[in-house]
Design a protein around this nucleic acid. Structure first.
Length: 1085
RNA sequence: GGGCCAAUAGCUCAAUUAGGUCGAGCGCCACUCUGAUAAGGUGGAGGUUCUCGGUUCAAAUCCGAGUUGGCCCA
């Protein structure tokens, strides 16, 4: 880009982006930037791999923008940052998507299609999705190593997972076991708890009577899963709970009883004897439509323990559990006598995790007559071959036939579903492989301490809770598209004794019977299933399962370094310095990495964590396709540009809190970029015209020529850099951005540029103009460096236009701007802050007095609260007078009083509160309302005592006096950062002199407007005529004829025959103005 | 049902991290400026700090109970 070249008048984000993308491509900006830091200190960032299905949504976009801003920042700080992006490419979501695309219903279809073909199809699909994501990420300027992402489906990466798993096995943490798991009957695989999605559905709701043995009556249980009744093994009670025995009648049975005298024997007249929780009996009996009942027995849960009952489907399921001790009542800590149900819980260890744990504890056989496809096995007796949910109806009918049904209805409740295919999950017991991380729970908790989290509560409140409760990790899935378990077991054996766990490709090639090439072998299921190992006369075959997809990403910290196939970088870099993901990853990647890191390496694989939130819609609801409130990043880019979108995303607090999307905010940020653009392009024509050369005219060379505003904006720049750096160190890039934008919009645009405009207009070369150029050059040059991590496009374009060929090819190679002590000046910053406070207050006072800025005012009086204000005003009187258009500025020192002011007081509650206790509020009100002539404590006290009719004993520290403005002047308090520092009074009284200038300026402004209507060049000369109707005003204006002629560049003044003519009304006075460009007049001659 | 987080102006957020009269930006309205000009400036309106209790002389802030939203878990 050429230095000080022409730029667009309007900030056009799309055009900027296009140009910058091309430019980056031309100069290999990314490659150069990486190379530039190659010798820097290493910084090992690990990208949490997004899953390759679907495109980048707002949340992913936020996540990647955050990663980009920190990576760019760290690079600017000199680090050689690892920036390899990653993609999570295995797992059930892709399988189900591919199945859908191929029109498959179940595993059988896959088997017919062929495993190899299916795996190829999954791979192809995942690669396609990856390309889409990559281009999404590139589209908003993320700089990562797109040419070499780590992919969980690559052999090197799969090997990393094998290696981690084998290390865990070496430590004895791998075991095969019978566990109660969540099974998706469609996908025919176990799924992780965090893959279960809960949805509201209608299910059967049945109350079942289990007839007691060796005593009268039945116990009542409740369930929404009739299909689990065949597997009933025991009933659980709350040992401490209160239960009742109830005799209940329906359909007029009791009347029949009272009619008959004898009530012995089991007759309908006796009703039914039912046992259940005291708290639930009314509700349950109502549910069973009993008309009448009587509590006949009260007992505790403990008393129920040991009662035995008959299996309600005894005949239908002949193989039901009947071992010693089963079909009895036991204590269970999962029972709640006040919750849903009856306080007696039907327990089937084959179909529930809690039931399984308790059943195992009791030493019972685990009866699970259901296969992985959700179909009853032979053990289920008459139900064999039916899908369990389909069998509900028949089971209900059978229970009714067996007179075991108390009530049968339906209920709406939330029930777990497979996150991918939306099929209701089943709890069944199957053989699975586990990493028994519960064996190293203490180590996990210790390792948690070794990582630093932002925000800290994410670790101490959230993550720790999860780690404490985490069960063993079921890592096996009965699917196809995943990393195969590297486990070989002796043929025909079904356990983890004598298993072989292969750790990498080299070991695989060495041990398997077949001849394979370690470098080229693919590790997917279709390949490795055929491999066998024969050692000491035993043949081993591979366990057919693949890994839970969470295991894939859990090894990212070494997988991204291609460890174990490459060792050098691992030795140098591991563990990760920094990872950054959303809060759903507490249970996901943050956890899986800790688990795997601890199991394999004994360490947490990351040092520092930034946990951000989710992107919600404008109403604070989560974005969801079904609700239709999803905002696509593409749309945001189209409407406001990538830079503005990034700015919006990066202006949100990144620590734990969710972000509400807002089009308004994004538009505001685009406007602020527009302001920057305007600031940037304003001095360019002048610099170009004057041939400004920042090398020759450096700030350092021109130091003595700098004016106050120059020094001030440079001082503000230093503070801004300091503030930003501090914010970045606190991992609060949002606060850093706030500081930068405030600097750009408030200090540079609204103050500095306003103040230096006149210097730029000077036609002759001057040291002052040179100094202004040098200052603004430095300010802009550093500003774009500070902005570069956030808004890489606009920063690049501005940087290129400023520096030309002088510096780096890209702003992103710049060093993070350091604070330069030379230019620091906190004194001056305070001065200007005070002056701006005074100026603002003065403008306010002017408005109150009804005097426009165009009209001079006689004087401004600044009543200072403290000496610092006096100092600032005295030092910069001229500047203040100029900006307020005042003829004179007076200062009233602290302690002194000005004019005929009345006084009141403001209470300092931190003093009043302790002194007056409960009456503080009352005293405060009296103080605030008091009105006195002198700011004097005694007078105030008298006024307050008068109101409260008491002697209050005020102290000076309790109050500060405030002035009450007299009528002829307007006064407004001013201050900095919300602290009052004094009052500005504007004396708006008119004099002839002031009126004269005021009216003259009114004329000037209207002539200027007419010049603009004619589209005249700034330098173009004109002939001018004006006629003021009011004689007095006409005389006043005439006094300033010279001023008018100079300002509007009028060479001739008098009556004009033609030209551009207009009637105006100025402050109620009619004025006729005509102008005619002189050049045009000559031409017409 | 449980854990964690959040709730302050119409919107996005502050309020010096063991309490002291709640402030910005945007938007809106009015005014203003006219050599950054499809820009710039000033002012104004707008608050039951989600609700209800409690502690305290004093609560947005501390405690308790709820409501709503978010994440995770059941």
């Amino acid at each position: 880009m050429s230095r000080f070249g022409e730029v667009d008048d309007q900030y056009d984000p799309e055009a900027v982006e296009q140009r910058v993308f091309e430019y980056w491509n031309d100069v290999d900006a990314y490659e150069q930037t990486v190379e530039h830091r190659a010798d820097g200190e290493s910084f090992f960032f690990v990208d949490g791999p997004p899953y390759t299905s679907g495109s980048a949504h707002m949340g992913t976009t936020w996540n990647k923008s955050l990663k980009d801003v920190y990576i760019r920042y760290l690079r600017m700080c000199g680090y050689d940052v690892t920036d390899r992006p990653g993609y999570d490419m295995h797992g059930l979501p892709i399988e189900t998507q591919v199945e859908e695309n191929l029109g498959f219903e179940n595993k059988k279809d896959i088997e017919e299609f062929g495993e190899e073909n299916f795996i190829d199809a999954c791979k192809e699909y995942a690669e396609e999705q990856l390309e889409g994501l990559q281009s999404d990420f590139k589209s908003f300027g993320v700089w990562m190593d797109w040419d070499d992402p780590y992919k969980t489906l690559s052999p090197e990466y799969m090997e990393a997972a094998w290696w981690g798993f084998s290390k865990a096995a070496d430590r004895g943490l791998v075991e095969k076991g019978h566990r109660s798991i969540s099974q998706c009957p469609r996908c025919e695989t176990a799924i992780a708890n965090n893959e279960v999605e809960y949805e509201d559905v209608e299910d059967p709701s049945i109350y079942v009577k289990f007839d007691l043995q060796n005593r009268d009556g039945s116990i009542v249980i409740w369930t929404t899963t009739p299909w689990t009744i065949p597997a009933n093994t025991f009933v659980a009670v709350d040992e401490e709970g209160d239960y009742v025995g109830v005799r209940a009648w329906k359909d007029g049975e009791r009347e029949a009883q009272s009619a008959s005298d004898e009530s012995s024997g089991d007759t309908p007249q006796d009703g039914e004897l039912l046992y259940l929780a005291e708290a639930k009996h009314e509700e349950v009996l109502k549910e069973g439509r009993y008309e009448d009942y009587e509590v006949v027995e009260e007992l505790t849960g403990e008393e129920l323990i040991g009662w035995s009952y008959e299996h309600p489907l005894e005949e239908e399921v002949p193989d039901h559990v009947d071992a010693e001790g089963t079909l009895e009542v036991y204590a269970g800590d999962y029972v709640d006598t006040h919750g849903d149900g009856t306080g007696l819980v039907h327990s089937a260890p084959g179909h529930g995790e809690e039931d399984f744990d308790r059943g195992t504890e009791l030493g019972f056989p685990i009866f699970c007559p259901v296969g992985g496809d959700g179909v009853y096995t032979e053990e289920a007796g008459t139900y064999e071959g039916q899908f369990v949910k389909d069998a509900d109806e028949e089971i209900i009918a059978d229970l009714e036939d067996n007179d075991a049904m108390l009530s049968s209805g339906h209920v709406h409740h939330s029930y777990g579903h497979c996150w991918r295919c939306d099929t209701g999950i089943l709890q069944i017991v199957t053989d699975q492989w586990f990493i028994t991380i519960t064996d190293v729970k203490d180590e996990l908790l210790e390792n948690v301490e070794d990582s630093e989290w932002h925000p800290d509560w994410a670790r101490d409140n959230r993550f720790r809770d999860f780690v404490e409760d985490a069960p063993d990790w079921n890592v096996s899935r009965q699917r196809y598209w995943g990393i195969p378990l590297p486990v070989w077991t002796p043929e025909g054996r079904d356990d983890d004794e004598d298993m072989i766990v292969v750790s990498d490709r080299a070991e695989l090639a060495e041990r398997v019977d077949q001849d394979i090439d370690a470098d080229s072998v693919d590790l997917h299921k279709d390949t490795v299933d055929d491999l066998t190992i024969t050692e000491d006369g035993t043949t081993y075959t591979r366990v057919p399962d693949v890994f839970d997809v969470w295991l894939d990403s859990s090894v990212a910290s070494w997988g991204t370094l291609n460890y174990p196939s490459e060792e050098e970088r691992f030795d140098e870099l591991w563990p990760a310095d920094f990872i950054l993901e959303a809060h759903d990853q507490t249970r996901g990647w943050f956890w899986s990495q800790l688990g795997m890191g601890t199991a394999a390496m004994g360490e947490v694989p990351y040092d520092e964590v930034l946990m951000h939130g989710h992107a919600l819609d404008e109403d604070g609801r989560k974005m969801s396709k079904s609700v239709g409130n999803v905002v696509e990043p593409d749309e945001a880019i189209e409407r406001h540009g990538s830079d503005a979108m990034r700015l919006f995303l990066l202006s949100a607090n990144p620590q734990g809190e969710d972000m509400r999307f807002s089009w308004d905010e994004m538009a505001t940020l685009e406007n602020q970029l527009r302001t920057l653009w305007n600031v940037f392009r304003f001095p360019l024509p002048y610099m170009r015209l004057d041939g400004f050369d920042p090398n020759e005219s450096s700030l350092e060379a021109l130091e003595d020529d700098l004016e106050l505003v120059d020094e001030w904006i440079l001082a503000r720049l230093q503070s801004t850099k300091a503030e930003m750096t501090e914010a970045f160190e606190d991992v609060r890039q949002d606060r850093a951005l706030d500081a930068l934008l405030e600097f750009v919009v408030d200090d540079v645009s609204r103050f500095y540029i306003q103040a230096v405009r006149e210097r730029m207009w000077e036609e002759d070369d001057s040291a002052s103009k040179e100094a202004a150029y040098a200052t603004i050059y430095r300010v802009l040059r550093e500003t774009v460096a500070l902005l570069a991590p956030y808004a890489p496009f606009i920063s690049e374009e501005i940087y290129g236009t400023l520096t030309g060929e002088d510096e780096h090819d890209t702003v992103h190679m710049c060093d993070w701007p350091a604070v330069e002590e030379t230019w620091e000046d906190p004194e001056l910053e305070t001065d200007v802050a005070l002056l701006r406070g005074i100026e603002e207050a003065g403008a306010n006072a002017r408005q109150q007095a009804g005097r426009k800025l165009r009209w001079p005012i006689a004087r401004v009086v600044v009543a200072a609260d403290d000496d610092r204000v006096v100092e600032a005003v005295t030092r910069h009187t001229d500047l203040l007078a100029d900006r307020l258009n005042a003829r004179e500025v007076q200062v009233v020192s602290p302690g002194e009083q000005w004019g005929e002011l009345a006084y009141s007081a403001e209470a300092d509650m931190s003093e009043l509160g302790p002194a007056f206790g409960g009456r503080a509020g009352e005293v405060m009100n009296a103080l605030n309302e008091a009105n006195i002539e002198e700011p004097d404590l005694e007078a105030l006290e008298a006024a307050v005592d008068d109101v409260l009719e008491d002697d209050e004993g005020l102290e000076a520290s309790m109050v500060s006096f405030v002035t009450e403005t007299p009528e002829d002047v307007a006064g407004t308090a001013f201050g900095t950062d919300g602290d009052d520092r004094g009052v500005v009074y504007v004396d708006a009284s008119l004099t002839e002199d002031i009126e004269s200038e005021g009216y003259a300026r009114e004329v000037i402004r209207r002539v200027q407007e007419m010049r603009k209507e004619l589209d005249l060049d700034v330098e173009e000369r004109i002939a001018l005529e004006f006629e003021v109707e009011d004689d007095r005003v006409a005389d006043l204006v005439a006094d300033h004829e010279d001023l008018i002629r100079e300002e509007v560049r009028a060479d001739e003044l008098g009556s004009l025959e033609d030209g551009h003519r207009k009637e105006w009304e100025v402050e109620g006075v009619a004025v006729e103005i005509a102008i005619d460009p002189l050049a045009a007049a000559e031409a017409s001659d």
